[in-house]
Amino acid sequence: MGTLKYLILIIGAVSSILPFYWLFISALKRPEEIMGRITTWWPNNPNFMNFAYAWDYLRPPVPRAFVNSVIVSASYTVFLLLGSSLTAYVLAKYKFRGGRLVFWIIISTMMLPGIITLIPSVVLMFWLGWLNTYWPLIIPGAVNAFTIFLLRQYMITIPDEVLEAARLYGCSELGLYWRIVLPLCKPALASVGLINFVWNWNDLLWPLIVLRGNQDIWTMQLALMGLWDVHGTLPQLNLVAAATVYATLPLIVLSLITSKHLIKAYTGLTYAAR
C-alpha cells in the first residue's frame, strides 16, 4: 500500500514538473535543435543568451509587458480581496432583511458561463470609455461571486465572541473589519488571492478584446500571443519558450512564498484550522 502511494505521488509530481522542465530546456535550445526531428532531454549546446534575446523579442518588450501584467494582476487582486472580503463579511456576520436573498443572487451568478456576459461587458467598457486602458482588467473582477462565497464560508467559522469582544472594547465596525476580520482571514485571503492573481495573470481572451488597440499596455500573455502577429512568420520557439519562462517565473515564486497558507487553505479552510 505504501509503495503504491509513493508511486502515485511520483507520477503526480513528475507530470506536474515535466511541462516546466520541457519549457526550461526549450528556452536553452538553439533554433535548429528545437525544430529538429530528434527529441533531446537536455540541450546539446545550452544557450543562456536566449533569455537576453527574448528580452526585446516581445512587443511590447518583456520589461514593459511584465510591468503591465504586475500592475493589472496586483491591482486586480487587491481590489478583489478588499471588495469581496467586505461583501463576504457583511453576508457572514450581519443579519439584515434580504441578506440571504442577496447571497443567493450573488451565488447564482456563478452558474452563468463567463462567455455569456462577455459582449455586454465589452459594451459596458465602451460606454465607460475604458477600452484600451488598464481599468477593464482591474475593476469588473473586483467583486467575484466565487471569492465572496469562499470568504463568507471562512468568516462564518470565526466565533461571534471574537468580534463582540472587539466591539465591546471600543472598536468601530470598520475597525472590526480591518483590525480583526482581515488579519484572521489571512489564510483564506492568501489562497483566494493567489488563485485569482494566477487566473488574472494568465487571462488572454478578455485582455485581447479590451486592450487590442493599445499595444503599450499589453500584458505578458498578450505579448506572447502577439509574437505570431508581430513577426508575420513562425516565431523562434526557443525565444518564445524563454519569454514564457519570464511569464511563469513570478507565479512559481509567488506559490512558494504563499505555500504555507495554501497548504492550510486546502487542508481545511476554516478559522479553527488556521
Binding site: V162, E164, Y169, L184
Partner: peptide
Amino acid sequence: EKDRDVAMVFQTYALWPHMKVKDNITF
C-alpha cells in the same frame, strides 16, 4: 456596547489570535 464602560470576560475568552498578549490587553 462600547460606550457603556463595561468589560466582559467571555466563556471562550475571545482573545484575538493574531495579536500578541500585550496587544490583546492594551487593545
